[in-house]
Design a protein around this nucleic acid. Structure first.
Lengths: 254, 254
DNA sequence: CTTGACAACTGGACTAGGCCACTTTACCGT
DNA sequence: ACGGTAAAGTGGCCTAGTCCAGTTGTCAAG
């Protein structure tokens, strides 16, 4: 059993499997640990070896590895082996939510709510939310943090009539999308999003704790429910120096 | 063989499997056809029945159904059966294509192909495309224009072995995605995308005809086929002063 | 009429093999 | 020193089962 080509070979594989929990699931967790200790590009033990080592059938190993591959932790090369993938982006989500995105990166998401109130809709906001200007809109301004560090400034606008009580909900560490679904039964289904580069104003730079005049990513997003009705219009400013915004796209049907 | 509970029972299952193509894949296609003809909530034949009907092992059926489930076409209920899912997604055009995007804005899209060649894969490219470093990769560098004006610089990497002849195809005014589907039968299904802000190098600025050191939008995208195999790794640099990148997002499952 | 037990059926998980296509490496002949 | 080739190793795909856990319709007892 000699190491082949590039990549670190794993010498000592950890623990054994316990009873009464799916073996594939346990195996997947073990492998996650192994992967975490390796460099990207490192070669994992072969499926046959893992099967022998843990006393399971190869199909079980294959399924576990398949799970890791679909989550982007490893990639498989036919005839060659299974390798540790680039770490950045685990658990890709479909519609980017800051909370989900951060959790997926192993960071702790947080929010500092700077304002949360019902205000009359401006022209621009009304147009996006398909409302009459002046209609009540929940305005939400949050500084989003990752491990306590400011990452983005989010200004969210939602139709107040459809979401009564949202202006008093606790949003400090909740995912807005989870909240909407749980407490109002509103499900986020699709969105249009525009990305552009802007320079930060002095105020914005101060909130994000970066130098003024720095470039930032501006995302504008209009989110809709399954029926196509607008739910949320957000303008998110992400600091350009530290953050990459991840989005998962899917094309379906023919 | 009586229908149970809710849901339509499928009476006549279509055709047989042909040789020399993965049975699971064929089965998946057949089931897609069956699903298309049914109402949401309809009950599919059981895995055991399908296995018998098509003369394959149940594990093969399971894998095919699993593929459909992960794509959101069906959902499985333990102990009860597999059902046709709600058709969640109307406008399946989700993936941003420069060509489509520009046409939607009423501008005329164009491309200046600066290089188009097969080169060995670098470490980074190989990892994204699930290849071994050094494998042949079609490199494509295009300046994308709108009404003749440079808008973006796109560097695309595709696995050469899967797309023979691509290095000589005419890409000056074709959509790459349309071409891949028409000439190689390769369908783009999903993608992960990362957006970030970068400063342009002098070379890049010259190509985009903007001042050097300007901020730009960098999009990195990894596109996959329905089976999850990487098709395309693109790095797109959009000039930050004139362009907004539009993306349509959809959320599945839930 | 209601209830509870149960049989029949579903997907979930797994085993112990098999063959194939592909990649890498080591060796052998030039 | 080089090039070709064969062997060994890898994941891809498949078979023919087994046992388990969850769901539901049936049917008999209360």
């Amino acid at each position: 059993m000699t190491a082949r080509r590039r990549g670190t070979q794993v010498e000592a594989l950890p623990r054994r499997l316990s009873y009464r929990r799916p073996k594939g699931e346990q195996l997947q967790e073990i492998l996650e640990g192994v992967i975490a200790a390796l460099q990207p590009g490192a070669l994992l033990p072969s499926e046959r070896l893992l099967a022998e080592r843990y006393g399971v059938a190869r199909a079980t190993v294959t399924q576990a590895v398949e799970g890791l591959a679909s989550r982007g932790l490893v990639y498989r090369v036919h005839g060659s082996g299974t390798f540790v993938a680039e770490p950045k982006f685990r658990q890709p989500l479909t519609l980017t939510s800051f909370t989900e995105d951060m959790r997926a990166r192993g960071m702790t998401p947080g929010s500092v709510v700077r304002s949360q109130a019902v205000l009359p809709a401006s022209e621009v906001v009304a147009r996006h939310l398909a409302l009459v200007p002046g209609s009540p809109v929940v305005h939400l301004e949050r500084v989003r943090t990752a491990d306590g560090e400011p990452m983005a400034l989010e200004r969210t606008h939602l139709p107040a009539q459809r979401l009564p009580g949202l202006e008093t909900a606790d949003l400090s560490d909740a995912s807005l999308y989870e909240l909407l679904e749980r407490d109002w039964g509103v499900r986020v289904a699709e969105a249009d999003q525009w990305a552009s580069v802007v320079r930060l104003t002095a105020d914005e730079a101060a909130l994000l704790q970066v130098d003024p005049d720095q470039p930032a990513l501006l995302f504008q997003r209009l989110t809709r429910d399954p029926g196509g009705a607008p739910i949320e219009y957000v303008r998110s400013l992400y600091r350009g120096d530290r953050y990459e915004v991840h989005t998962r796209l899917e094309r379906l049907g023919g």
